[in-house]
Simulated scan of single mutants.
Amino acid sequence: MNFLATVALSLAMSTDAFAVAISKGAAIQKPNLRQALRIGLIFGVIEGITPMIGWAVGQAASRYVEQWDHWIAFGMLLVLGALMIRESFSKEDESEVTADHQSFALLAVTGIATSIDAMAVGASLAFINANIYVTAAAIGACTFLMVTIGVMLGRALGTLIGKRAELIGGMVLILIGCTILYEHLAGAA
């Protein structure tokens, strides 16, 4: 895989995480750069690891990953989106939601949900003998950058969006999950 293809793939793999990061930044009460970097690092590391897992699985049996990746991603994003939507209607005061309120576990699960497609990409890269280490590092670095920017962009949009940032974020997660499922089913037809 050449440099341009690696960059394009890295950008494509980071778009889901970028969309989620904007909603995270809007939902968090004024995240600072340190907090945005933390969230970016969590998403970037996960997004960098999943293609390597997919590549390893692809070496053995990629058809199993490709058969279920879209359903796994859809299910995880649907559940996370529904939880965010439910949370948006809770009586908790918005001023209590801080970046520290965003637990590592919740961020990691969200990162995994948005990176399931990268696992399938890793599986497909096993068949073309691409350098998975370079590709995974590029995907992780791009995701780190895009998520950090997304959180800070979400911070700016948060004042415009107000209390419904989590509602919008939940709907974005569900929409991403539906898009993943639709793209797979449309491609199979």
Rank of each mutant, 00 (worst) to 15 (best):
F144M: 12
A126S: 14
T50Y: 11
E92D: 13
A188Y: 05
T98G: 07
G177R: 02
A136F: 08
A56C: 09
S88A: 15
S62I: 11
G162P: 06
T148M: 09
F127C: 02
G81W: 02
R155H: 07
G187A: 09
I85C: 13
A73I: 01
L4S: 14
E96C: 05
G25D: 00
H101G: 00
K24E: 10
T50V: 05
L153F: 06
V147I: 09
G187F: 04
G162C: 04
V20K: 04
E183H: 11
L153A: 10
Q35D: 11
D117V: 00
L106E: 14
Y182H: 12
S62M: 13
A136Y: 07
I22G: 03
G154S: 07
G58Q: 08
V121R: 11
V172T: 14
A136N: 02
A130K: 01
I176V: 15
A130M: 08
I46T: 12
V20P: 10
R86V: 06
E87K: 14
T114F: 12
A61G: 06
I149C: 14
G169I: 03
A56P: 06
E47W: 00
Y182K: 08
L153T: 10
I49E: 08
G158T: 03
F104R: 00
A156N: 10
G170K: 06
L160E: 12
V151W: 02
G44E: 01
N32M: 09
D16I: 03
I28T: 05
R34Q: 11
T135E: 15
W71I: 12
S23V: 06
F104V: 09
A108V: 02
G40Y: 03
G177Q: 07
V121N: 12
D16P: 03
D16C: 03
L173F: 10
I180F: 05
T143N: 05
C178K: 02
A21V: 01
L9S: 09
Q29M: 12
L83S: 03
G58A: 05
G158K: 02
I42H: 07
E87D: 13
S90A: 04
G187S: 10
A21Q: 05
V147Y: 12
N32K: 09
L125V: 01
K30C: 06
Y182V: 13
Q59T: 11
N131W: 11
E166N: 13
I128S: 13
I42D: 04
V121H: 11
L106K: 01
K24A: 12
W55E: 01
R34P: 02
L9V: 01
L145F: 15
G122C: 09
A123E: 01
W55I: 00
A26R: 07
E183Y: 09
T15P: 03
E66L: 15
G150T: 02
F104T: 05
I49L: 14
S10C: 08
L185D: 05
T179F: 12
M84C: 10
T110I: 07
G154V: 08
I46A: 08
I139V: 14
I176L: 14
L4Q: 13
G187M: 03
L41Y: 06
I168K: 02
M171V: 15
G169E: 01
V134H: 14
G25C: 01
S103R: 06
Y133Q: 10
K91S: 14
E66M: 15
A138N: 07
A17I: 00
G111F: 08
D100F: 00
A186I: 12
